[in-house]
Amino acid sequence: MTNSANFNSTLKAINPSSTSEEDTEIVRVPKSQVNEVKQYLNNKAQKQKIREVASISIFECKTSASIPLAQSKIAAGLPSPVQDYTEQSIDFNEYLIRNPNTTFVVKVASLSMLGAGIDVDDDLIVDRSIPAKNRNIVVALVDNDFTVKRLMMDGEKKWLQAENPEFPDIHFNDGQEMVIWGVVTRVIKNLK
């Protein structure tokens, strides 16, 4: 790989949305500092790749509110008459949280799970009491860094699969440690 190609792949890792059509700028660096600048950029790219979880917070039920629940489903296709009455109400604490004592909320900081509908700044509800199974989306601790990926299992072999072709899957080498912190049960996203 040429220095130019290596530098471009580093830039792509730092800013995955950049394209080859984007205007560029030449920056001159003293020859004695070239390797140091390249190492800095590579380190920055690695940190950005790994940083997939912006924050983790323990779920704490502070309020209770019952919200009316419509009795009929709403069609996503053609409009249909909506009944103007409700008979039930729903408490989102009960609806979203199976076990408050083992539940926490994670804010997503990368696009590695975009294909699964998980975007940057989405909140994930994660339950530590649920045993992780093949194809579950999990929060995992890999070499002291948190990541959100789909757990894949084939016999004894386990790996973490990204849901975006721009991000690599995580395959484990001997001595590498992975701890499943919990299974993602819900994705909360803002549509505005």
Rank of each mutant, 00 (worst) to 15 (best):
D145I: 02
N99L: 04
E166M: 12
L191W: 03
E156W: 05
T86Q: 11
T10G: 07
P100V: 01
A132Q: 10
N43R: 14
K158P: 00
V105W: 01
A13S: 15
Y95S: 12
I26L: 15
T147F: 01
R128F: 02
S9G: 10
S129R: 11
L111G: 15
T102H: 03
R98T: 07
N173E: 13
S17I: 08
E94I: 03
N43M: 11
N164W: 11
E60K: 05
K73S: 08
A13E: 15
Y85H: 14
D84I: 06
M178E: 02
L41C: 09
E22N: 15
K73D: 05
S112K: 11
E177G: 00
D84G: 13
N101I: 00
D84R: 15
I74T: 10
E36M: 13
N8Y: 11
K38Y: 11
N101E: 13
F92C: 03
S55W: 00
E87S: 04
A140L: 02
N99M: 03
M113I: 05
L78H: 07
T102I: 01
F59W: 11
N144M: 03
S55V: 00
Q83W: 10
E166P: 02
N6L: 14
S20Q: 13
V139S: 09
V105A: 10
D145H: 15
I130L: 14
P165H: 12
P100S: 05
R51V: 01
V27R: 11
K38L: 12
S17N: 15
I50L: 13
M152K: 15
R51L: 04
S80K: 06
V126F: 00
K12G: 13
I125Y: 10
P81C: 08
K38G: 04
E52W: 01
N93T: 02
N101Y: 07
I125V: 15
N164Y: 11
L78M: 09
S66C: 07
E87M: 06
Q33R: 14
K157T: 03
A45S: 13
I56S: 04
V183T: 05
A45E: 10
D23E: 12
V108H: 06
S72L: 07
L114I: 10
W159G: 01
S9W: 11
R186F: 12
R128M: 07
Q88D: 08
V27F: 08
N99C: 05
I90A: 02
P30S: 10
A5H: 09
L191K: 12
S64W: 00
I56V: 08
V106C: 00
N8G: 08
A5E: 14
K47I: 07
E60I: 00
E60L: 04
P30I: 06
S89P: 04
V148S: 13
A140K: 02
M152I: 10
K133P: 04
L41Y: 03
Q88A: 06
S80R: 07
N99A: 06
